[in-house]
């Protein structure tokens, strides 16, 4: 382990360039530590985003040596190429400045995928009983821990090729709701997520599942949505 890291950091907006920094290398150092060191000690004008530093909020994702990652939980020792690190903003999103991307479209697509729960019961009704071992509950469990970091979205080639594609995170959210037996907006949601900007655009290659820091498999959920949409189309429920 050399004493310093050679770090290239993206500066600018969509047009810009990489700037070189030297950062002291430390034990158990995370990529977020490196970025924070640069901002606190070398260049206070560097913009980036983080909040929790423990892998819960999903705000610190960046492209590290070409791969989208959550930086607060990524150790330098795991990703450095010798003593070299290249840190860029997430792909597939407009850059606001330096390492901070504009995530509005990413979250707008959750809304477009009907990512909100729609129930009928009120506080005066009895609790709905959902058996933990039921197939639906287990399918929802598999996708429910998403922290909205955008790593999957930045890793999806189809988002690059078809900017309207709703993307893995929004579709994963729709899949968890499709498995919520209390939800009564299933038909509208399925209509919203079927089609060539929805689940049918996915190539099932699995970059999103490979990269998701929470080990969620949006690819599997999207395949599930395709099955539901196929069944609904045959029954005439997608019209």
């Amino acid at each position: 382990m050399s004493a310093t890291l050679k770090v290239k950091v993206w500066r600018g907006k969509t047009s810009g360039s990489f700037v070189d920094y030297e950062v002291p290398r430390l034990e158990s150092q995370t990529v977020l530590d490196v970025v924070t060191h640069i901002q606190r000690h070398l260049d206070p004008s560097l913009s980036y985003r983080f909040a929790c530093r423990v892998g819960m909020c999903g705000s610190c994702a960046m492209t590290v040596n070409g791969v989208a990652r959550w930086t607060c939980r990524t150790h330098v020792s795991k990703v450095a190429d010798g003593d070299a690190l290249e840190i860029a903003p997430l792909s597939n999103l407009p850059v606001i400045k330096d390492l901070a991307t504009d995530m509005r479209e990413f979250f707008d697509k959750w809304a477009k995928s009907h990512g909100q729960f729609k129930g009928t019961k009120t506080r005066h009704d009895e609790f709905e009983q959902v058996r933990p071992e039921s197939r639906e509950r287990m399918a929802a469990n598999a996708g429910i821990e998403c922290i909205g970091c955008g790593v999957c979205y930045a890793s999806c080639d189809v988002v690059t090729w078809r900017p309207d594609f709703l993307g893995p995170a929004a579709l994963n959210r729709a899949w968890t709701l499709a498995n919520d037996v209390r939800d009564n907006a299933q038909r509208e949601r399925l209509k919203a997520v079927a089609g060539d900007v929805g689940c049918h655009a996915c190539h099932t290659q699995g970059s999103c599942s490979e990269r998701c820091p929470k080990q969620i498999e949006p690819t599997a959920g999207i395949a599930g949505l395709k099955r539901l949409a196929g069944r609904a189309a045959v029954r005439g429920e997608l019209e």
């Binding site: 399925l190 209509k191 079927a194 089609g195 060539d196 900007v197 929805g198 049918h200 395709k226 949409a229 196929g230 609904a232 189309a233 045959v234 997608l238 019209e239």
Partner: peptide, 14 residues
């Protein structure tokens, strides 16, 4: 096909 038509896409998938 390949317009944002959910039914068409679902059938093509089939």
């Amino acid at each position: 096909a390949l317009n944002p038509d959910a039914v068409t896409q679902a059938k093509l998938w089939y």
